[in-house]
């Protein structure tokens, strides 16, 4: 079987209006993919930046996949949340990005969005916080049910991902 190593970091996020941010992340793959070692989901620390407006998480990712096919190439999905001084959490953005398919080092910028909801919900979010969230997290990385949503832009999550491929040339796959 061909092997893929995904080694890198969720560096941080820019462009969010909230200041104390953290990120829940996960990786979704097709049925032909098997995770040999590493954790496929996690949550970063909460960062309150003192200089500049970028929140830094430096969250390490180290995953080792074996695959029998190319279908279902890994997708990273992200949820950015903000935490206020009382420890309450509010959704700031959803986003996903495909793990790059060429070996080497990649800088990824993942744009995010959040559901808007009705005008009542928007008004409530502006005054008391909270706001609508997705019931099914798979909407983040699948395109199937998106057409029903009305969304607003969030900030951008920055990732530095290195990719190592093994035995792809043995099967004639050019990445």
């Amino acid at each position: 079987m061909a092997e893929v190593h995904v080694i890198g970091q969720i560096i941080g996020a820019t462009g969010f209006s909230e200041s104390s941010l953290f990120c829940k992340w996960g990786i979704h793959t097709g049925a032909a993919w098997k995770l040999l070692s590493g954790v496929r989901e996690g949550q970063t620390q909460v960062d309150t930046p003192q200089i500049g407006d970028m929140a830094y998480w430096s969250h390490p990712i180290d995953l080792h996949f074996a695959t029998k096919g190319l279908q279902g190439w890994p997708r990273l999905h992200l949820q950015v949340w903000s935490q206020d001084s009382f420890g309450r959490c509010q959704l700031a953005g959803y986003g996903f990005c495909h793990v790059p398919s060429s070996p080497g080092t990649h800088q990824l910028d993942c744009p995010t969005w959040r559901p808007l909801g009705s005008w009542r919900e928007q008004l409530a979010r502006a005054f008391v916080g909270g706001g609508p969230q997705l019931l099914h997290a798979d909407t983040i990385y699948s395109g199937a049910d998106r057409y029903r949503l009305h969304t607003a832009a969030g900030g951008t999550v920055h990732l530095g991902i290195g990719l190592l491929l093994r035995h792809f040339d043995r099967y004639g796959v050019e990445c």
């Binding site: 620390q45 960062d47 990712i61």
Partner: peptide, 17 residues
């Protein structure tokens, strides 16, 4: 611990350099 991904959800940090 800063090189580990697990158990981070309980930490709050301040980036300053």
């Amino acid at each position: 611990v800063v090189a580990q991904g697990e158990g981070r959800e309980v930490t709050r940090v301040r980036s300053q350099g």
